[in-house]
Design a protein around this nucleic acid. Sequence first.
RNA 1: GGCGACGUGGCCGAGUGGUUUAGGCAAGGGCCUGCAAAGCCCUGUACCAGGGUUCGAUUCCCUGCGUCGCCU
Length: 305
Amino acid sequence: MTIRKSVVVLGPTASGKSDAAMTAASLQPKGSVQIIAADSMQVYKRMDIGTAKPSETDQALITHHCLDIAEPSERYTVARYVEDVNTARTSIAHAGAAELIVGGTGLYVTALVDGLDMPGEWPEIRAELEANEDTEALFAQLLSLDAEATTKMESNNRRRIIRALEVCLGSGEKFSSFGEGIGSFSPTSTTLIGLRWDRDALRARIAERVNIMMERGLVEEVRALLAEPNGLAFTARQALGYKEMIEHLEGRWSLDEAVAATILRTQQFAIRQDRWFRRDPRIQWVDVHEDPIEEVTPVVTAALE
RNA sequence: GGCGACGUGGCCGAGUGGUUUAGGCAAGGGCCUGCAAAGCCCUGUACCAGGGUUCGAUUCCCUGCGUCGCCU
C-alpha cells in the first residue's frame, strides 16, 4: 500500500511553513491529508513553546505524526526518526491520505524523502574509538579502511570520523558503501516546496517570535523540564531557547543575555538551514515577502491536488 | 575655556618604524547517512585628516577634527 501523494514544505525556522501547510491541509477534504513533522526537537514531549510545536487545536484538526514521541530525557536520533516515519506512513497509507511533510531539520527531510538506510550502531566499538584522543590517527585509520568516506569530511571532524570508523569496523563493510550520501538528490515523486525570505526580514521575524515565546512562558517550560526526575538528555538540552534558558536558570546568564543569545543563535541556525536546503535542485522555491499563509498556501494546495 | 586620554577592518580589541601586519564577535561561503536546533572547514591588509621627521610610518613630532573624562 503506498501513499497517495507526498508533498514537503520546508524552510528555515519562523518562515511560516507550518502555518502555510496547516492552512493548505485544512482546505482539503477532511481526513485526506496528514502531516508528518520533520523536526528534530518537536519529537520531544513537553517541549512545546520553544519548538513552536503545532497547537492542540491544529493537531485536533489535522492528524500530525512524529510529534511528542520521545522523552526529553532520552536519546533520539535520525535512525529512530526513520522508523517512526515508517510507522506513520503505514497508517497514512491505510487511511488513504496524502502525506504533507513539514520541516526544518534538513537531515530528517532528506532521510524521509530519499529513504536513508542507517548502517547500524556498534556502541562498544564507538566507545573504544572515542577513547582515542589522537584524531589524526583516527583519520589515518579511516583513510586506510575507506578512503572514499574520507573525502566527505575534514581531517579533524572527530565526530564524523568516529562514526564512519564505527560502521566500517562494526559492519565489516565500508561506510561509503551504505549510500550515495546526502547530496545525491535523486529524482523523486515527492514535491518539494521551499520557503525563502530575505534574510533581514527573516531575522526580524525570528526576534519577534522569540519574544513571543518568552511571553508564552518559555522560562517556565524550561524550569519544569529541569525539575523532572530524569531531566533533559544531551540532545534535548541543546535545543535553541532551551540551552540558553538553562544558562539563565542556572545563574550563568541574565535573562536579557539569554534572550539575546537565543535570538542570535536562532538567526544563525535559520541561515544554516537555508544553506542546507538550497543545495537541493529538486526544491521549488517560493519567495515570501509578507504573509506565508497567503503566499505559500496556493502552491501547497496545487501540489496536493 | 583649560588639562588629560583616546581615535585600528561591520563591532570589540592587541600590536609594531620596514620579511607572514594578533585575537574574539558579527557577516559571507562550504562540508555532511545515528548527538543534525549538533559537528567540522574556508574567507578579514584596517590603522581619523593634513603636514613634518625618516631610505621607509598605522607606529615618532606638529596641527586640525572627533569622542570621552576631569577642571574652571
